[in-house]
Design a binder for these strands. Sequence first.
DNA 1: TTATGTGCAAAACATTTGCAGGAGT
DNA 2: ACTCCTGCAAATGTTTTGCACATAA
Lengths: 142, 142
Amino acid sequence: MQDASQIRMTTQRKTILEELEKVTSHPTANEVYDMVRKRLPRIGLGTVYRNLELMSESGMILKLEVGGTQKRFDATVHPHYHIRCISCGKVDDIDIPLIDNIDRNAADLSQYQVLGHHIEFSGICEPCSKSDEEDEEEVLIN
Amino acid sequence: MQDASQIRMTTQRKTILEELEKVTSHPTANEVYDMVRKRLPRIGLGTVYRNLELMSESGMILKLEVGGTQKRFDATVHPHYHIRCISCGKVDDIDIPLIDNIDRNAADLSQYQVLGHHIEFSGICEPCSKSDEEDEEEVLIN
DNA sequence: TTATGTGCAAAACATTTGCAGGAGT
DNA sequence: ACTCCTGCAAATGTTTTGCACATAA
């Protein structure tokens, strides 16, 4: 892991971190880019990617390797689980207690040095389940 | 979900499924392509992608949305958990018992209609932990 | 002052898609 | 026959990278 104390606090990095702390929505790199660009219109997408990567390596933020096509980022660094809507791709926190004995369990059953685990629930979020009902109506109408 | 009985059994699909059943390594689409190409040299990568997608929608195979940049595929369709090597990206099965009460737990704590969950352990596989030691030696030598 | 970081653009990857011809049922 | 499927190639979407210039410490 990167040593956070060696990372220069540039305007770009500070802004990315501040914007990420403002939201609970686990934005993608491109969404972070859009948020940050309102304050720093000349920032490059490459800079956003480089910094999200660097900050996640140093433990300042969390990189979520959830399902879907894009990585997502989270300023909440303490371990917690997530739920993803299979319809719209949105990711929310799920605050159930951590299962703390399971890593040892996995270590006993594998040849791996186990470092941790992540649970991803999948489901349908409320807005999507409503628009699904509308879709069904549309089907009936047509 | 697609109805499996309506899917035509083409040579390409049969071969993809057979090759996937031969291995336990959770190959990526490109790895499946390489495996199948030995038997069907003219198959296209697009066909492999289309069929892996179709077969996972119909429940014939499992699409693993694990960490890393690529999706992985598994002919073992019963629910089970996985462990991924953060060094080489390899994915193995972990045969710990399923946690069957946790979905209700998540449903109570969220606005989602919960459909299921997946646990992904992360760790370092045995071959990688050995080559890491070699790397450390190299650092000392240089 | 100097190692690091940035903006920009191009490259690299992973995946999807349009289309004309081919094959399963 | 009549769909559905395939190979091919081009397009799309995401992430990484090379380089000349800028800037935090």
